[in-house]
């Protein structure tokens, strides 16, 4: 019998990085609650989600791309592009918001698909191609309009004012959207063949090939899906700000990548968890809220703390992954 060789590994040990991330979130949130009066409250907790809704949605898509061992630098620019596209379509071309959203989603998905095709079919580095995608989307956004366009449509007002009350918790539309996307992302990542294929491709492409998994399709699809997520984030951004702005989301891709890495997903691919991304969003948002609450701490501490967390996590991952 060979069974004696292995003991049952505990859930905690298997999901160590997730546990570490959760502990860091609890620690940060606890510290902030300790220091700042009124931090420990439902509205603050809800605002962690609603204030970072479009960043969070982008992070969900980014998680899937990073699962596959790729990266997508274009998401920030796609958010800016879709937001101004939608705003212009509604304001100047009098399109119904729903139609405008559809056009925006099509545009985002189309751009993602094209990048995926280039990356897979010509074996080009994702880094470079999505960089080009970023420039393209940013340029096109500014081509549509160089200035921010406000959206005045009664449908928009209604949607943005929509909220659900759950006990003492009042969830606004943007938070609901984020939660929905997170749930969908969770299902895709952990309960579909597609999600597991992505992890297999990122974990060991050669093996995935020999296992007969549909590599090419999965790779193209994940960039398409991420383009869709970015467009969705763009829509939520228009809801949140009530306008479209071609300059929106500059540098947002970095925050999204940081969130994914802080969530314990390996940037080289093959290992990760969508719950980690949720925790990453919460950690990111907690730091931001704490700095805002403090009032004395300047905004740049945000970047320094996030950078330091990145360093800690990357070193931690290297230590955990050293061959035993």
């Amino acid at each position: 019998m060979i069974g004696a060789l292995t003991r049952r590994t505990s859930w905690i040990r298997r999901n160590l990085s997730l546990v570490v991330t959760a502990a860091i979130f609890v620690l940060l949130f606890g510290l902030a609650s300790q220091f700042y009066d009124g931090f420990f409250s439902t509205p603050v907790f809800v605002s962690l989600l609603s204030d970072n809704a479009f960043l969070g949605i982008a992070a969900v898509g980014m998680t899937l791309v990073i699962f596959s061992g790729g990266i997508d630098l274009s998401v920030g620019a796609v958010i800016g592009f879709t937001s101004i596209l939608i705003a212009t379509l509604i304001q100047e071309h009098h399109l119904s918001p729903v139609l405008a959203w559809l056009v925006g989603m099509l545009a985002g998905t189309g751009l993602g698909t094209s990048m995926g095709l280039l990356i897979h079919c010509f074996r080009l580095p994702p880094f470079l191609i999505t960089l080009a995608g970023m420039f393209l989307a940013r340029g096109l956004g500014f081509w549509i309009s160089t200035d921010s366009v406000g959206i005045a449509h009664e449908f928009y007002g209604r949607i943005s004012a929509y909220e659900i009350t759950l006990g003492s918790m009042v969830l606004p539309a943007s938070a609901l959207m984020l939660l929905a996307v997170l749930a969908a992302g969770y299902v895709i990542a952990h309960h579909t063949r597609f999600g597991r294929t992505l992890l297999a491709v990122g974990g060991n492409e050669q093996s995935a090939l020999l296992m007969g998994l549909p590599l090419g399709g999965a790779k193209i699809a994940v960039y398409a899906l991420n383009g869709f997520c970015a467009a969705l984030a763009g829509i939520v951004a228009t809801l949140y700000t009530g306008s479209g702005n071609p300059g929106m989301g500059i540098g947002l891709e970095l925050d999204a990548i940081a969130i994914v890495v802080i969530g314990g997903t390996l940037l080289t691919g093959g290992r990760g968890h969508m719950l980690g991304t949720l925790l990453g969003i919460l950690i990111f948002a907690t730091i931001q809220a704490a700095i805002l609450f403090d009032g004395r701490l300047s905004s740049w501490w945000m970047r320094i703390v996030v950078g330091s967390l990145l360093l800690v996590f990357i070193l931690l991952q290297r230590m955990l992954l050293r061959p035993r």
Partner: peptide
Amino acid sequence: VATLILMVAGRGLAQ
């Protein structure tokens, strides 16, 4: 990955 750390934190340090 390695240079991303300083890319994120560096601008904060400058500020």
